[in-house]
Amino acid sequence: MTDIESPQIQALKQRYRESLAEKIELIEQQINLIVAAEADAGSLEEAHQVLHKLAGSSGMYGYNDINLLCRKVMSGLGGSSVDDSVNALNQIAELLEQYR
């Protein structure tokens, strides 16, 4: 396998990097939703879906730390309080911020 990436792949990676801002916004929306709904099952499930998607795509683009953190947060999200969930999601948003 070749290590040299084609310009098309490089462009896709650049596009993903640029989309991190949107992903941060999406996570902030989830934080607001969890706070508003007091971390009910629905809001946590939606956050789980967002993290599931982020875990998949971030790993594919080589952001292994984002992938791992998403998985870690996902596994603990089920029985957590509003503060715990918000803190965990903030951690992810902060990590994403580092790569912007």
């Binding site: 792949i9 993903y16 998949g56 795509s57 594919m60």
Partner: peptide, 15 residues
């Protein structure tokens, strides 16, 4: 359904 993943996989396979 995730365009980020789909585009990357499709591009690598097309190449």
């Amino acid at each position: 359904d995730d365009a980020d993943i789909a585009d990357l996989v499709a591009m690598m396979m097309s190449e």
